[in-house]
Amino acid sequence: MDITRFLQWLQVAAATDSTAPMKRRIVRFQSRSDCRRFIQEWAKLAHAHPTLRDIRPMPLIQAVSCELPDDCPPARLATHCMIEPDMQVALHGSVHKSAEPESGIPWGVRQIKAPSVWNITTGHRVKVGVIDTGIDFNHPDLRHSVSRGINLLVRSLLPYDDNGHGTHIAGTIAAANRLQGMIGVAPRSVIHPVKAFDLNGTAFVSDIILGIEWCVRHRMDIINMSFGMKKRSKALLTAVTNAYNAGVIIVASSGNDGKNKAIDYPARFPQTLSVGATNKLRRIAPFSNRGSLIDIYAPGDKIISAWLHGNYNEMSGTSMATSHISGAIALLLAHRPGLTPAEIKAILKKSTQPLRGSKAPRRAGELDITRMMQAADAQA
């Protein structure tokens, strides 16, 4: 591939004053060597050519993200790469309202029976990458549960949460302040916040891929993905597959459309663990997507967890269910390190509690951590 010519085309396309709007796209190279040479050449030119500075390399999937016009690159260049839209992704949490922390252990943590195994495992040192809106580093319930992480939107800053969703997710997974605040499912696991979502709770697929790449490079054990989109992205599938092959278990929320046979991506990819939401009655929450594409259910209705400025909020959504599952896997991995993503998925799916309700699916049930640990011990 003529890398120099491709860079020249990108430079001209970006600099052209056209009435056609520029759109964010992901360019994946068919050849690993082409990708490597492109990134090397781009790095040399970017300082001198401002129009090239917005290009973001994504080595995990042999790709870059950049803004391009609608017209395709010259045919001789296009045959060496695949171009797809850099789509927007939305969080899977509903409108929130302020709340006080529940006295004692949060109902969702109790319902999945996390306290029954805390004498065996608390998730000690298991690394959970939470790709979300960041985290409130100063929250009293999270101070001992958080590592530095990364801010993909502003690399020079810590991944401070300006939305609240990421802090809520982190609280359910790993809060550790039972006497005065709340306690999460795996209070001695470590949250690595990966800020890919902005103040409004939106991100691009390229931001998610960069987040996955960071998690793989920094050897996360678990990636929590409490977000989704309707359309399939081949680039995102490639990133998820590469993380899966690297031994990282990805937990993804199914979506809040109340649909019976459809779930959002990336939960729809077979390499993830797809999660639906239940309520206090062990029934599927009305808002939760459901059906044969769901691997497991967990509490997701009216969940109280940590929020910005040391506060607490109640939220509902498959986002909240996903954080319960990520915490449970942290407990499992601290007790049985070395389990593969496929083994973890199999253990969780065969150790669930049946759901209640006449229309409850027989194939997938609600997380039961006592059964999960028994199944893992039986397999050892």
Rank of each mutant, 00 (worst) to 15 (best):
R5L: 12
F6A: 15
W9G: 12
K23H: 02
R24G: 15
R24Q: 10
R25G: 04
Q40F: 06
A43S: 13
R53I: 00
Q62Y: 12
A78V: 06
C81N: 04
Q88G: 11
Q88W: 05
S94W: 01
V95H: 09
A99Y: 04
E102A: 13
E102Y: 07
T121E: 09
T122K: 15
V130L: 12
D132I: 05
D136F: 07
R143T: 14
S145K: 11
V146G: 08
S156A: 15
P159C: 10
N163I: 01
T167W: 09
I169D: 02
G171S: 05
T172Q: 06
A174C: 14
N177T: 06
H192T: 11
K195S: 03
S206E: 01
S206P: 00
V216K: 14
D221R: 09
I222W: 09
M225V: 05
K230G: 00
K230H: 00
L236S: 10
A243S: 06
A243L: 05
S254M: 02
S254E: 04
K261M: 00
K261T: 02
F269D: 10
T272W: 02
V275Q: 04
G276W: 02
R282N: 15
R282G: 06
R283V: 00
R290Q: 14
G291L: 04
S292K: 13
L293P: 00
L293C: 08
L293M: 13
D295T: 04
I303S: 08
I325M: 06
S326H: 09
P337N: 08
P337I: 07
P341D: 11
A342R: 12
K345H: 06
K349T: 11
K350M: 11
S358L: 13
D368Y: 13
R371G: 14
M372C: 14
M373Y: 01
A378S: 12
Q379D: 13
